[in-house]
């Protein structure tokens, strides 16, 4: 007897017919074909408990192989598939169809503020450059201990929230300041600076604060909270930015 498989379940599921027809309204752009971006509708049979990413795959695999998007892990860890779904930045793999009113067409667009290269694929380089600019690595002085550095559970907890970042760019590309001026570091870079500024083991907080004190740094933030709403990891992004601002004023962190 072979290993039990899901075949039976699938057919049973079909009998109960959980499938509904959903229209995906997707922003298409391919400069090899046309200089203009257009909207295209695709009707898909899908179980509402499935993900938006499953819908995109059904389109790519069964209808139009040229539909282009990034994805990898499909469960909200790798950060590849941030996109604008019904006007909000989300990960396609963490958004279930049933949660976004499938009775109306679901709009899917690339994230904003970064150059669109094809369909839902944007140029991530400016985003990663801002990340690299905040020196996102532990900097210490003096001799290394032979064992681990000690850190209390409380000190570890202090920066726990900002360690969760997966660099998906959902926050940065939801920020109106970033849309208007791509020079702004953006929330994700500040989150990653925060992760080190508030790490008790790190000794370069002052340097990072000076970088963020720049005219394109934290002071550009207008606390619209778009970033916090957009973060698929539930990071309190705006709060982290406020903590960096406060550290710049008080020079205490």
């Amino acid at each position: 007897m072979a290993t039990p498989t899901l075949e039976k379940v699938d057919s049973a599921a079909q009998e109960a017919s959980p499938y509904i027809t959903v229209v995906f309204r997707i922003r298409r752009f391919n400069p090899e074909v046309s200089a203009e971006a257009t909207w295209q509708d695709f009707a898909v049979e899908i179980d509402p408990k499935e993900r938006v990413l499953d819908g995109l795959h059904k389109i790519k695999w069964d209808q139009d192989g040229s539909l282009t998007f990034r994805r990898s892990c499909a469960h909200g860890i790798c950060g590849s598939d941030a996109m604008r779904i019904n006007g909000k930045n989300r990960l396609a793999c963490k958004t279930l169809i049933k949660d976004i009113n499938p009775s109306k067409p679901i709009t899917v667009e690339p994230i904003k503020g970064l150059t669109v290269l094809k369909d839902l694929v944007v140029d991530m380089e400016p985003f990663f450059q801002a990340y690299r600019d905040v020196m996102p690595f532990l900097i210490t002085k003096g001799n290394e201990p032979t064992r681990e550095r000690l850190q209390s559970a409380e000190d570890r907890e202090r920066f726990d929230d900002t360690t969760k970042c997966i660099l998906c760019a959902a926050c940065t590309s939801s920020c109106p300041v970033f849309w208007n001026d791509g020079q702004y570091f953006g929330p994700a870079a500040i989150v990653n600076a925060h992760r080190f500024i508030f790490d008790s083991r790190d000794e370069a907080g002052e340097q990072r604060l000076e970088i963020l004190n720049d005219k394109d740094g934290v002071w550009r933030c207008r606390t619209t909270f778009n970033c916090t709403d957009a973060c698929p990891r539930g990071i309190e992004v705006t709060k982290a930015i406020q903590e960096v601002k406060r550290a710049l004023i008080t020079r205490r962190f």
Partner: peptide, 16 residues
């Protein structure tokens, strides 16, 4: 990895 900055969970003594 700890020296590279990895934020391990800690014991009450501050070790990994």
């Amino acid at each position: 990895l700890e020296k590279m900055g990895l934020p391990f969970n800690r014991t009450p003594d501050g070790t990994i």
